[in-house]
Amino acid sequence: MRAGRMHADEVEHDVPLVRRLVATRFPQWADLPVEPFDSSGTDNAIYRLGDDMAVRLPRRAGSAAQVEKDLRWLPRLAPLLPVPVPVPLGAGRPTEDYPLPWSVYRWLDGENPSVGRLTEPVPLARDLAAFVAAFRRIDLPDGPPAYRGGPLATLDAPTRIAIDDLRGMIDTDAATSAWEAALEAPGWAGPPVWIHSDLMPGNLLLVRGRLGAVIDFGTAGVGDPACDLIVAWNLLPAGVRDDFREALRVDDATWARGRGRALSIALIALPYYRDTNPVFAANARHVIHEVLADHENAG
């Protein structure tokens, strides 16, 4: 699925634009082929550059800060993580054609996982736990606040607005009950830890069913470790969630906050992307179903 325009303030982009940008900023790559890449990414449009590179264009101004953030932090994070992460090769400045900074990365092989089609779910759950645990152990000073690293209560207002917007589409009473239960969980009392905070299926690359790479570190930083548990509901089957949880030794409160975080992300995403990004919207529906099922079983 090639995601088209998703945001009202999205900057236009196409192959001729990318060719002009590359030719001006990186003339050594001007003769390489440029092809749009099918992606459901909400922050950046991706174009293949030759066989082993990718051009990444922020879709709107709010995502542009990721370019500088990646250049600063990815080279420092990469040696500390158990799987490959994006390698920035260079950045481009805004131009008259394209008013935002942009960047070129080394291409990473692999395929995004599909819910319900995992061939190695238990090993994958352990791979993901190892990645999350490695991230938490990182000791790099002056880490930026993670985009989703704050208290769950800061999402209360937008989550309730989203629930109201979804009347007639989901069981809003059950969603409200599950959300309020998550808000009752004790907050994170420890020091902030490094987290990716956006472990969505579209940011994971699998090779032969196992975790081969993790991409899109635009939301990474320090905060509540519960944020990196969202993958338990947006990808992993219910039958292997305990494998993931046990590998990380997650306490009840952190697990509850992670489940609430996954629910909030999905509730807010569904009304926003239901007409513009069917892949993202479908995953949001899946998360809502899984979290509400967990909440009902717990009750």
Rank of each mutant, 00 (worst) to 15 (best):
M1Q: 13
G4A: 10
A8I: 08
V11L: 14
E12G: 15
E12C: 13
H13C: 15
R20L: 10
R20M: 09
P27N: 11
P27C: 11
G41S: 11
D43G: 12
D43R: 08
D43H: 14
N44Y: 04
A45L: 14
G50V: 07
R56M: 14
V67H: 04
D70L: 13
L71Y: 11
R72W: 14
A78P: 04
L80E: 12
P84F: 03
L89T: 11
G90R: 05
A91E: 15
G92N: 12
P94T: 10
V104Y: 08
G110M: 07
N112I: 09
V115N: 04
G116M: 06
R117E: 15
A130W: 06
V132T: 08
D139W: 02
D142I: 09
P145A: 05
A146P: 07
Y147S: 15
G149T: 07
G149M: 07
L152M: 06
L152P: 01
A153I: 14
T154Y: 07
D156P: 06
R160V: 00
R160L: 01
I163R: 00
I163D: 00
G168H: 04
A174S: 02
A175Y: 00
T176V: 08
S177M: 14
P186R: 04
P186N: 03
V193R: 03
L204N: 10
A213I: 10
A220N: 06
G221K: 05
V222P: 03
P225Q: 05
A226H: 03
A226T: 04
L229N: 02
V231R: 00
L235P: 11
P237R: 05
A238F: 05
A238N: 08
A238G: 14
D243W: 03
E246W: 07
A247E: 14
R249M: 07
A253F: 01
R257A: 02
S264G: 04
A266I: 00
A266E: 00
V279I: 14
I288R: 00
I288T: 01
E290K: 03
V291S: 00
A293W: 00
G299D: 08
G299C: 11
